[in-house]
């Protein structure tokens, strides 16, 4: 069952054309990634979805035009508030929805163990490591119990080892919860590891240049045979990305906030 449908989404900032007709679907319980070079307009797409900016095109959810509060959004950096303890950061979305702080804490507290944060409920965010901060940010995102998760390069700021650990952890978490999720990333391996389907975007102005299904069984981290199949898919996507991009090498996939 299709939940989110985007049809021919366009967005210009003045003379700058950012999105040149992006169409995509996300089904119920599906993990979909948007993969594209930096500056392609991936984050602009999320801003359109959360209503922060307006663009052209059709956005539908469960068949009806998209209205406000469908998404729980996880921004690029963890965006934890340093002045709130970890548990109060986790309850932020519930408090904004009008839940009393006490009730929100009771709802969130049992989830700390599953998110690897047991014992850190009363800690300040500054006392956590990078991986723990991202898990706290994801906890804050999922407890909002919205229809769909929007994850904007959630592991982009982590060191390589922590990032790999977090990707594996997220895959296990997703397997037990089956969230409907849309992930933005420019990490091909991350997209292949986590997604059911991948939309590959061109450089700006962004269009979908390829849609890749990833039919690998889960969990995907365990076997060597799976790793070979994943590597083949990764290679195919890289060919698309680098072939579509400007041939000058320093224009490729540098990390930059877009």
């Amino acid at each position: 069952m299709t939940r989110l449908e985007l049809r021919d989404i366009r967005k210009n900032f003045g003379a700058l054309e950012v999105l040149a007709g992006v169409s995509l679907d996300v089904g119920a319980g599906e993990f979909v990634s948007i993969l594209g070079p930096s500056g392609a307009g991936k984050s602009t797409l999320f801003q359109l979805l959360t209503g922060a900016i307006r663009g052209e095109g059709e956005m539908r959810f469960d068949g009806a035009p998209l209205d406000g509060a469908r998404f729980a959004f996880m921004p690029q950096r963890d965006a934890l508030m340093p002045w709130r303890r970890v548990i109060d950061n986790a309850t932020l979305g519930l408090e904004v929805q009008g839940m009393k702080r006490r009730a929100a804490r009771e709802r969130v507290a049992p989830l700390f163990a599953e998110f690897g944060l047991a014992g850190f409920e009363r800690a300040w965010p500054a006392e956590l490591s990078g991986g723990m901060r991202q898990r706290a940010a994801l906890l804050r995102t999922v407890v909002q119990q919205r229809d769909m998760l929007l994850l904007d390069e959630p592991f982009g700021a982590l060191d390589a080892l922590t990032r790999a650990a977090m990707q594996r952890w997220l895959e296990t978490m997703w397997q037990s919860h089956r969230w409907t999720a849309l992930l933005i990333t420019h990490d091909v391996r991350e997209a292949v590891l986590l997604s059911d389907r991948i939309y590959v975007l061109s450089a700006r102005p962004a269009r979908v240049v390829r849609e890749v299904a990833v039919p690998l069984p889960r969990p995907r981290i365990e076997s060597a045979a799976l790793a070979r199949e994943a590597a083949a898919i990764e290679a195919g996507i890289l060919d698309t990305l680098l072939g579509a991009a400007d041939p000058i090498p320093d224009h490729s996939m540098e990390t930059r906030n877009d």
Partner: peptide, 23 residues
């Protein structure tokens, strides 16, 4: 105030006054 925090709060459904008070 970090723009990401404001955007996140807006996506949670917080109005201007809420964003001022919380962030």
């Amino acid at each position: 105030t970090s723009a990401e925090v404001s955007q996140m709060l807006a996506a949670m459904g917080a109005g201007r006054w809420r964003i001022f008070w919380l962030a």
